[in-house]
């Protein structure tokens, strides 16, 4: 007998009579959202919650975006910036740092020497202050936003902002690898003192972009 059969057999024996197939639907009396259904208020909530978990949050219009990205990188003193291959080209239009587009061959060791990474996202969740990356357009492979110490992430409002976790999941494709990010990496393992940044990017900057 294989262990598979053994385990499945043990489960069936443990359960006894097979449960009737027609069951009551599971109780889902919780709320779909706890946030206001109004784009400006939702964006404010996202802003507050991101900042509360110590992401640095900036706002600008789509017209201002290239200048703001350039400014953030310059302030940081970034010399090399990694980007996904399909980042909208104008986003880096004003950037002077050396650009490294990931063609699929960038290694973790190479990225370890890169100062910053700039990406878009799949969506952002206002109630929890979360940014979701799903390796979709403008986001690149997972290691791109993991190894460099400085991550600049662009969120387009209102279309990429959802209120809650229940509203986020239906918009995400389970087949894609996902990283949900809520503030920079942190630990409270030493006497419960919160320390920002252990292994992921220690600085997370979020640009909330609205149409001009």
């Amino acid at each position: 007998m294989t262990s598979r059969d053994l385990i499945l057999g043990r489960i069936r024996a443990a359960l006894g009579e097979p449960a009737p197939p027609e069951e009551q639907p599971l109780p889902r009396h919780y709320l779909t959202t706890h946030a206001p259904d109004e784009p400006a208020a939702l964006l404010d909530l996202l802003h507050r919650n991101l900042a509360d978990y110590r992401a640095r949050v900036h706002r600008c219009t789509d017209v201002e975006l290239p200048a703001r990205i350039a400014e953030l990188l310059a302030t940081r003193g970034t010399r090399t910036v990694a980007v996904p291959p399909d980042l909208p080209p104008d986003w880096l239009g004003a950037v002077t740092a050396e650009r490294l587009a990931d063609d699929g061959t960038l290694t973790a060791a190479r990225l370890d020497a890169v100062d910053s990474v700039v990406t878009g996202c799949a969506l952002a969740i206002a109630e929890t202050g979360t940014i979701v990356l799903d390796a979709g357009p403008g986001q690149g492979r997972r290691l791109l936003t993991l190894v460099p110490d400085h991550h600049v992430c662009v969120v387009r409002a209102p279309e990429q902002v959802v209120a809650s976790v229940p509203l986020a999941l239906p918009r995400l494709d389970p087949a894609r690898p996902q990283t949900w990010i809520s503030g920079p990496s942190a630990t409270s393992d030493i006497e419960l003192d919160r320390v920002e940044g252990v292994h992921g990017p220690r600085t997370l900057e979020v640009l909330l972009v609205t149409p001009a």
Binding site: N49, Y53, I125, E127, T128, G129, T130, P174, A175, R176, P177, Q178, T179, W180, I181, S182, G183, P184, S185, A186, G200
Partner: peptide, 11 residues
């Protein structure tokens, strides 16, 4: 926390 810093999902 409202959400922990990182959640990874893979298929």
């Amino acid at each position: 926390e409202r959400m922990n810093p990182y959640t990874s999902l893979w298929t």
